[in-house]
Each structure stands twice: as C-alpha cells, then as structure tokens.
Design a protein around this nucleic acid. Sequence first.
DNA 1: ACCCATTGGTTCATGATTCAACTTATTTAG
DNA 2: CTAAATAAGTTGAATCATGAACCAATGGGT
Lengths: 158, 158
Amino acid sequence: METENGTRWLSDEEQRAWRTHLDVSRLLTHQLERDLQPFGLTMNDYEILVNLSESQDRRMRMSDLAAATLQSKSRLSHQITRMENGGLVRRENCESDRRGLYAVLTDHGWETMRKVAPHHVQAVRRHFIDLLSATDLAALHASLTPVAQHLREHRGQA
Amino acid sequence: METENGTRWLSDEEQRAWRTHLDVSRLLTHQLERDLQPFGLTMNDYEILVNLSESQDRRMRMSDLAAATLQSKSRLSHQITRMENGGLVRRENCESDRRGLYAVLTDHGWETMRKVAPHHVQAVRRHFIDLLSATDLAALHASLTPVAQHLREHRGQA
DNA sequence: ACCCATTGGTTCATGATTCAACTTATTTAG
DNA sequence: CTAAATAAGTTGAATCATGAACCAATGGGT
C-alpha cells in the first residue's frame, strides 16, 4: 500500500469509495439543479431562500448569509444582486452597524419559496433520501459529521 | 411527517443528514481545489489527466472522456482547449472515424501527473479517507453505490 | 482624542460554464 | 444509391464564479 517514494496510495476499495462519493456529489447537485430549473431557480438561489425564510424577520446580514451558505462575500454579493433583480430579495441597511446590510426576503420571495419547496423536497427524496434505509442514512450522517467538522476548521488555510 | 398538502417533508434527522452530505461535498471539493492550486491545476484538469494516464496509449476519444468525467461535450471541448494551451494535452484526429478526435496526454502532461498525484492523494487522505474507519468507508461506499447508479440512469431526462 | 488594524461589503477584470446553433461525417431506411 | 436522421465536436454569446483591490465604518490601544 506504500511505495518507495513514501506516498500512501489508495487501496482499490478506497479508490472506489472515493470515486463513488465524488460521482454522487456531482450527479446529485446536477440533478437537483435540473429539478429546480423549471422554477427559474438555482440551488444557490434556493439555499438563500431557505436561510432567509427560516430567519428572524426573514432577514440576515450579508456576512452571516455568506458564512451559512459557504460562499465568498464577493460571490454572495453578486448573487444577491441577481436575486434582487428577480424581485426575490431586497437589500436594507443596518442601523446598528452602518457598514452592514441585510438581505431581506420579499413577499414574492416568500411565495416562491412556498411554491417551490415541496418539489425540491420531493426531488431530494427521490434522488437521495428514499434510496437509503434509515440506518444507512444515520450511519452516513455519523461518518460524515467529523469530516464536515474537520473541513470547517481547516477552511481558509493551507 | 406528512402535511395536508401531501408533501412528505424531511424529518429532522433526514434534514441533518442531507445538509451534512451537501456541506461535505462542497467543502471537500473546495479544499481539494485549493490543494491543487499551487500546481496550477483544477480538479477538472486533474481528473482528465488521471483518465488519460490510465488509458491505452494515454489517449481517449473526446466523447468517452466527456462521459467518464460527467461533463458536457461543450464543456470538455473548452477544457481541452485550455489544457492544450497549457501543453498538458494535445488533440489528434481519429483514423477510423473522421469526425472523431483523441485527447492525448503529452509528455509534459504525464510528468505533471507524476509530480502532482502524490500530493493530491495525500490531500484526499487527509481530508476524507483517513477521517473514516475502514468499516465506515465500506458502509458509505455500499450505501452510495445504488444512489450513483440511480442518478446515472436518470441522467438526461425529467 | 487619534491612529491603525479589522470588519463589512462592493467592484472590476479575468476565467469558467452553459446552452443553442452550427459543421462535418456516419448510419439507417427505403 | 440516396435522403434523412443521428453522432462527434466546435464555436460564440451570455451567465456565473473568483480573487484582488478597493471604500467606508468600527473598534481598540495608547
């Protein structure tokens, strides 16, 4: 499993598992993207709608929203601009910190959310959740949680 | 778990598992992207190098390569053009089917592969493989395989 | 009170991705 | 044998993402 130059290559089973994970993650986001397309939304749009709609007063600070959705500030800024043009969201400035801005869900954004969510959930079920037994899903969750935590900690460094 | 409009919403555990999967998949690709950056490669570049270097005569038909890497023909075409400009790969036309083209790994591409692969493997280990026990990894692989298969079958339709 | 480092957010330039339109070669049906 | 359908790839325009540079407000420290 180890070669003269000191590299610990992946075993066959490790390779297969890794490739499967990669494939699922790509195929799945691609599929969900396609399922949202008829509604004129991307996964990114949708995730922002979710975050805002679950927040106090349907609003979040730009920074917090960026952190919650794992995007860069720059990307979020563009994203919100697009959604603002689509009438899903509006910017509103923050009293307590005059640098800050809120992204606020509009009524149209809220309505869109209500209309689209059931379809999206159904898609997540069809292509992922319902293909796994409850125990498999729990095991998967348990395995992946430390990975997620590790990655969060290592974010933004070499 | 089911509401008046007939939507089967996700249970809390399902939600958490799903979000964790999503987060891992995004954080992980982002991290691996960053680990490749010092070598001037993206994950896409790398995956193409892998595919070519494992193929007979270090060459593949464009279509096959597109299928293997789950990309559209258009995207692959642009991608190969970039890599061709970087000297990693070259196009060569196919005798048996005059519409067809091969993407061929250049010597520089091969050397790049040899140099980068150990670092990439190490990154995959550090951020994923080595964070899971062998049994967890096997279970994850077993759970995900039917999902991957389902998604492959459903590709390209509603 | 003042300077300076930090934080919150945008903007600009560049590169990547997507989708539809297009060309050329191959296959199939009649 | 030929016409229509299909397959292999490319191209171009529009959209989206990334990273660095930037501006403005805040918060300490001295």
